[in-house]
C-alpha cells in the first residue's frame, strides 16, 4: 500500500514537472528547393495593393509593367469595332444603356431601375457592357446605335462627375467618335475622336484626363499575357448567384495566344509536346483567369490551387506549360504572383 502511494505520489510529481516544462516545439527548417531542369520562374510584382499590371512575352521572356487604372473605356483596334470598360477600377464601375431615350432624357431618375452591366471577358462581343453597338455600312465605316450610355465611375468623391453620359456617333476610317458629358447635363459637353493604333489591341480613354491615355506598353505582338485587375461575375457557393467581383488574375492576348487548362489527370511533370498538341485550346481572354488561387477565409490567405496548370500555344506555334507557384513574395506580401514555365520541345 505504501509502495503504491509512493509510486502515485512520484508519478504526480513527474506529471507536474512534465506539465510545467512542456512548451512549443521549434519548427524545423525546410531544405532549399531545387528548381527542376528546364523550368523557369519569375515573380510578377503587381504590388501589395495591385497597383501595377505586368505584361509578359514567353517567346522573348521579356516584359513590361505600368500602372493599373489609368483608363475608363477602351476602343478596339482590330477589324470589328467595339468598346470595353475598366470594371476592375472598383466594385461599382459599370455601364447602363438606354437604347430608347434621347440624350437629354437620361437623368438621375432613369438610373433608379437601370440595368448595370460589366464586361464578361469571354471573347464574345455580346458579353461586353457596351454590347455590339456598331452596324456595318461599308468597308471601314460603321454607324453607331442611337443609344445613350451612362458609365458609373463608382467613386462618390467625384460628386456630380461620377456618372458619365456617353453617346457613340460612329466609326469612320479608323476613327471612333463619341459625345459625352455629365449626367445632369441635357446636351453633350464634349465630342471626342479616338484614332485606332494598329500596334495595339485597344486605344484607351480617361474621362478624368479628358484625353486618351497609354495602357499597353508593348506592341500587340510583343506580349502574351498580362497580370492585371479586372471584374467578373463569380458564382456564390451554395446559391450559385452571380456577383460581380473585382479580381486579380491573368488575361491573354487573344490574337497571339491560345490556352488550355489542364487538371490533375496529367501531372505537370508528365506534360510533354506530344500531349500538348492533342489539347483543345481557347482564345478566351480570361481562360487563365484568377482561380488558380483560392482565398482561405479561415487564414485570410491566398493559396495556390494544387494540380492546376495551363498549356499555351503562341502565335509562332511554340508550346509552353505554365503553373503558378505563389501569390506572395519572399517577405510574405501578397500581390507578387510567381509563375513557373517550361518550353515544350
Amino acid at each position: 500500500m505504501k509502495r503504491t502511494s509512493l509510486f502515485i505520489f512520484w508519478s504526480f510529481l513527474s506529471l507536474v514537472s512534465w506539465s510545467l516544462t512542456a512548451c512549443e516545439k521549434e519548427e524545423p527548417l525546410y531544405p532549399q528547393p531545387q528548381v527542376p531542369a528546364g523550368l523557369q520562374t519569375r515573380e510578377f510584382a503587381m504590388g501589395e495593393n495591385y497597383e501595377n499590371q505586368i505584361w509578359f512575352h514567353f517567346g522573348s521572356q521579356t516584359g513590361s509593367s505600368n500602372a493599373f487604372g489609368l483608363w475608363d473605356i477602351a476602343f478596339a483596334c482590330d477589324s470589328k469595332p467595339h468598346l470595353i470598360i475598366n470594371g476592375g477600377k472598383n466594385q461599382a464601375f459599370s455601364l447602363a444603356s438606354f437604347p430608347n431615350l434621347e440624350y437629354g432624357q437620361v437623368d438621375q431618375d432613369q438610373l433608379t431601375n437601370a440595368n448595370w452591366a460589366i464586361d464578361v471577358l469571354n471573347g464574345n462581343q455580346d458579353s461586353l457592357a457596351f454590347g455590339d453597338p456598331f452596324q456595318y455600312e461599308s468597308p471601314g465605316h460603321y454607324s453607331a446605335q442611337s443609344a445613350v450610355y451612362v458609365l458609373d465611375r463608382g467613386d462618390d468623391s467625384l460628386g456630380t462627375q461620377r456618372y458619365i453620359k456617353i453617346q457613340l456617333t460612329g466609326y469612320r476610317a479608323g476613327v471612333y467618335s463619341f459625345r459625352w458629358g455629365y449626367l445632369q447635363e441635357t446636351t453633350p459637353r464634349f465630342t471626342t475622336y479616338m484614332k485606332v493604333n494598329e500596334e495595339k489591341n485597344y486605344v484607351y480613354y480617361s474621362f478624368a484626363k479628358k484625353n486618351d491615355v497609354q495602357n499597353e506598353p508593348l506592341h500587340k505582338s510583343a506580349w502574351d499575357i498580362v497580370f492585371t485587375t479586372y471584374k467578373e461575375p463569380v458564382p456564390e457557393p451554395g446559391t450559385g448567384i452571380l456577383y460581380p467581383y473585382v479580381l486579380r488574375g491573368v488575361l491573354i492576348n487573344p490574337t497571339h495566344l491560345q490556352v488550355c487548362e489542364v487538371g490533375p489527370e496529367t501531372p505537370f511533370e508528365a506534360m510533354n509536346l506530344d500531349k500538348a498538341k492533342s489539347l483543345n485550346f481557347s482564345r478566351k481572354l480570361n481562360e487563365i483567369g484568377y482561380d488558380w488561387k483560392a482565398y482561405d477565409q479561415g487564414t485570410n490567405q491566398y493559396t495556390i490551387v494544387p494540380n492546376k496548370y495551363f498549356v499555351i500555344r503562341d502565335v509562332t506555334g511554340n508550346y509552353f506549360k505554365i503553373k503558378f507557384v505563389s501569390f506572395y513574395n519572399d517577405q510574405g506580401i501578397k500581390g507578387f504572383p510567381k509563375m513557373a514555365w517550361e518550353y515544350l520541345k
Binding site: P33, T299, V325, A340
Partner: peptide, 14 residues
C-alpha cells in the same frame, strides 16, 4: 500556421 508554400526558389508560410 498556414500550409507551406514553395515557390520553387524558397519555401514560406504564415
Amino acid at each position: 500556421r498556414s500550409n507551406a508554400e514553395s515557390n520553387l526558389t524558397s519555401v514560406g508560410g504564415y
